[in-house]
């Protein structure tokens, strides 16, 4: 049984191919302007890796904001259900998923079989999402990939008090002009995201083990800031960023 999951997020597009409940290939790229081209490319990339062709795939499920654009998908399922399924597939014991994506963040409470019991999502504001980090990286003139390691050497993390991404950017710029160190500011930015995500997740009954998914899970600074709030039992799977696509492919396995 071969299935594919395609997750079209606001920032990146992801694809996972599963064969009999085993991951055989994954691919990831930026979404860009042309959503249709983005998923077509990512699907062929993943298929090439697995040395397969589209017609060999038994079932395709799409997810993410662009899910409706995938006309070859047999089913479209929201990223909430897919993230829960993905986490259950990767780590069956997981009871809470915290996903920090490009433009939204969410916390999901899982049943033993991976079903969603409850979920919360961020409000209209972009603070507490990957976009917040992108905006800050631009203001700091630092490559986003360096954010994590730079924050590790911070001595006195600053406090970002603004709740709004745009105003927080102004706040950061004023801190730069005050001569605060880049590392301290970056560490402050990570704490700000962690605080925001944690207070959102607290609306749910947060049960361990907790898994962090989404692209932001690659940032060690945010991970550590979240661990300060949630404790050390925060699971980061190597497939964290692909979790939604994996969940979609896994649901495609179960629903075939």
């Amino acid at each position: 049984m071969l299935t594919a999951g395609i997750d079209i997020g606001s920032t990146t597009v992801k694809c996972a191919i599963l064969k009999d409940n085993e991951i055989v290939a994954t691919a990831i790229d930026f979404t860009g302007y042309n959503v249709k081209k983005a998923w077509q490319n990512i699907l062929s990339k993943a298929l090439d890796k697995a040395k397969l062709s589209t017609n060999q795939i038994d079932n395709i499920i799409s997810t993410g904001y662009g899910r409706d654009s995938v006309d070859i998908a047999n089913k479209k399922i929201t990223e909430i259900t897919c993230h829960a399924a993905g986490a259950h597939f990767l780590e069956p014991g997981v009871r809470t998923v915290i996903d920090i994506g490009g433009q939204d963040s969410k916390a999901i409470s899982l049943a033993e079989d991976g079903r969603v019991i409850d979920f919360v999502m961020n409000d209209k504001c972009a603070a507490g999402t990957g976009r917040f980090l992108e905006v800050m990286a631009r203001a700091m003139e630092v490559d986003l990939d360096k954010f994590g390691e730079l924050s590790m050497v911070a001595r006195e993390p600053v406090k970002i008090s603004s709740l709004c991404t745009v105003f927080a950017e102004s706040e950061v710029i004023s801190m730069i002009s005050q001569g605060k160190s880049r590392e301290d500011i970056i560490a402050g930015i990570h704490r700000s995201i962690a605080t925001r995500v944690y207070s959102m997740a607290s609306r749910l009954d947060i049960r361990s083990p907790i898994m962090l998914t989404g692209g932001v899970a690659k940032n060690i600074g945010v991970v550590n800031a979240l661990k300060e709030k949630l404790g050390d039992n925060l699971i980061i799977n190597p497939y964290a960023q692909l979790n939604g696509a994996i969940g979609a492919a896994y649901l495609a396995q179960r629903q075939s």
Binding site: T78, E79, I80, T81, R115, V116, I117, M121
Partner: peptide, 12 residues
Amino acid sequence: QIESRIDAFCEL
């Protein structure tokens, strides 16, 4: 955003 939330809620 609202459609996503409603969809997820209906899936639940």
